[in-house]
């Protein structure tokens, strides 16, 4: 049977808008089931705030299955909280104990301005994908799916990095606010596949340059990998850098071969 966790102290960041000064507010949760998820604990708190006539705490969330990438939160200074390889929505209260004090903040990065409370604007990620994170394959002209055999290890490696959920934990965890893990994951997914070869170098060039417009630079701290709910390896950053260097130094005509 489920047990309950008692006397939680929550210090939660409240901020009305991007240009308004924010501050921590303290809330107590007397008792919550250890079967509850972290976000269900916030739902419960919000219900109480509404019944007290106060405004609910704003936070992004949707699927609650760890796949849509909508949820965020810095929990005690860690993006998505203490459990490795787990998005906030999949974090459960059984990971906490009676009397714990928990600090809850939004993802903080220059490229992710705060919209309200714990909600941030991550649309710069979309700008990176729009600049090259795709394979140009207009609807209708595709050849038979089994025409090109793709070695299983290649396909598996592409899948490993394609798992990125675009949550932004990598950026939030990075002391530089860099988006190299996010960008590298998409580049590694597409550049590894035979279908991705024709645009391989154009892709990496435009994605890196778009990324550099908004985000900080990578200095190999590796915090991103530790925070990633999909445990995407920093190896993708090596691949990103390798392809970017190649794109910059070699002749485009040679690369196309």
């Amino acid at each position: 049977m489920s047990n309950s966790i008692k006397n939680l102290t929550l210090k939660i960041w409240r901020q009305l808008g991007p240009t308004v000064k924010g501050a921590f507010e303290t809330y107590n949760v007397d008792e919550i089931s250890d079967e509850a998820s972290f976000l269900e604990m916030l739902d419960y708190l919000n219900e109480r705030l509404i019944s007290d006539g106060k405004e609910a705490i704003v936070f992004d969330h949707d699927c609650r299955e760890g796949i849509c990438g909508t949820c965020s939160l810095m929990i005690d200074g860690q993006a998505h909280g203490p459990q490795r390889g787990t998005a906030t929505c999949q974090l459960h209260m059984r990971k906490f104990s009676d009397g714990d004090s928990i600090v809850i903040e939004p993802f903080r990065a220059a490229a992710f301005p705060i919209i309200r409370d714990l909600m941030v604007d991550r649309s710069k990620f979309d700008r990176i994908i729009e600049s090259g994170g795709f394979i140009t394959a207009p609807t209708g002209g595709a050849p038979d799916a089994n025409l090109i055999a793709i070695p299983k290890p290649v396909s598996d490696a592409a899948m490993d990095s394609a798992q990125c959920i675009g949550c932004g934990a990598c950026v939030a965890a990075c002391p530089n606010g860099a988006a190299n893990l996010f960008t590298g994951a998409k580049v590694a997914h597409l550049n590894r596949l035979p279908q991705g070869q024709p645009e391989r170098f154009k892709r990496v060039e435009s994605m890196v340059e778009t990324m550099d417009e908004y985000f900080g630079s990578c200095t190999n701290h590796g915090e991103c990998e530790g925070a990633c709910p999909k445990e995407i390896s920093v190896d993708v950053i090596a691949l990103l850098n390798k392809d970017y260097r190649k794109a910059k130094f070699a002749s485009r005509k040679d690369l196309a071969r």
Binding site: T139, G141, N146, P151, D156, L190, L193, Q195
Partner: peptide, 22 residues
């Protein structure tokens, strides 16, 4: 059948057999 062709062309990493086929 067109959907699978289309999605593979876009780079969707569907599971494959060791021979490389879907």
């Amino acid at each position: 059948v067109n959907i699978i062709d289309q999605m593979v062309a876009q780079g969707v990493p569907f599971a494959r057999e060791y021979g490389g086929l879907l």
